[in-house]
Design a protein around this nucleic acid. Structure first.
Lengths: 144, 144
DNA sequence: TTGTCTGCAAAACATTTGCACCTAT
DNA sequence: ATAGGTGCAAATGTTTTGCAGACAA
């Protein structure tokens, strides 16, 4: 007789860390919710330094990361830490993986009125007909 | 008699540097034109190291910057060196200045079919209904 | 008590820069 | 001869991490 025992180990990906109350973290979130200037970590640090004189920049970064993981705020930049270059100057869009930083081209027609509207509304001079989308690439989705 | 002499000094903004031939720069451009994987500076360095054993990473960066200034290639990332955070999770778009890194919100309807098409074509899982545009903000345009 | 949070300083990381020498024009 | 170009190493600026002590559950 053969007995086969399969032990199924479930690994919870949504890191099952039990977060404690952290006043600093709370305040960081409040600060970001009440400010639409898309602050940097350093700006947050400067603000909260007044409130918590001993505050450390490391704490700000750690908490921003936690809040991002919890989905309570978003990091606007792509995730990749290094610049990527493109020798193809024809109009095309980019789609960037927030985890591994890989970039794919995307050929799709986007109504030009969007760009005109954006330029009129914001006063920006835009890269012509080029949008960037962020997300997770197939490889990183599988690893998840 | 009063003689007034006005000397008009024209400052050419398109930096009037006379570029010399540089084999390294030529090869960097060729490499980027023939490769659609959106390489990083480091990747370029590794490739050309075979060809120019004494090559320095600084040279790669310097030439990438020059080629970008000359409009012969584009840097896909935003330009800002620091991350920016957003506590507003409602669907809205971002428009980022490549020079100073400032971020503005953009409220505009973008046809959802774009996102569906992008996901189908690339296999990415996208940030919902969010696009990013790059360009120069009004302040930086004035400084130019 | 346990696991999380924090400050501090050092490390990591991509990118830039100063300097002395080399090279194209 | 002169203005760029290059290699090297050091510096820069942002973000991460190791550690020991503090704190919340």
């Amino acid at each position: 007789m053969i007995i086969v025992t399969i032990i199924k180990i479930e690994i919870t990906m949504n890191s099952s860390i039990k977060r404690k109350n952290s006043i600093r973290r709370e305040r960081i979130l409040e600060l970001l919710r009440s400010n639409h200037a898309h602050p940097t970590a350093d700006w947050v640090y400067d603000q909260l330094k007044k409130e918590f004189p001993g505050l450390s920049l490391g704490t700000v970064y750690r908490n921003l990361k936690i809040l991002e993981e919890e989905g309570k705020l978003q990091n606007i930049h792509g995730g990749s830490t290094f610049d990527r270059y493109d020798g193809d100057l024809s109009p095309h869009h980019h789609i960037i993986c927030e985890r591994c930083g890989c970039v794919m081209d995307l050929n799709a027609a986007v109504d030009d009125s969007l760009f005109r509207k954006a330029e009129n509304e914001t006063g920006f001079q835009l890269r012509p007909s080029q949008i960037t989308l962020y997300g997770l690439c197939p490889k990183c989705l599988n690893k998840k």
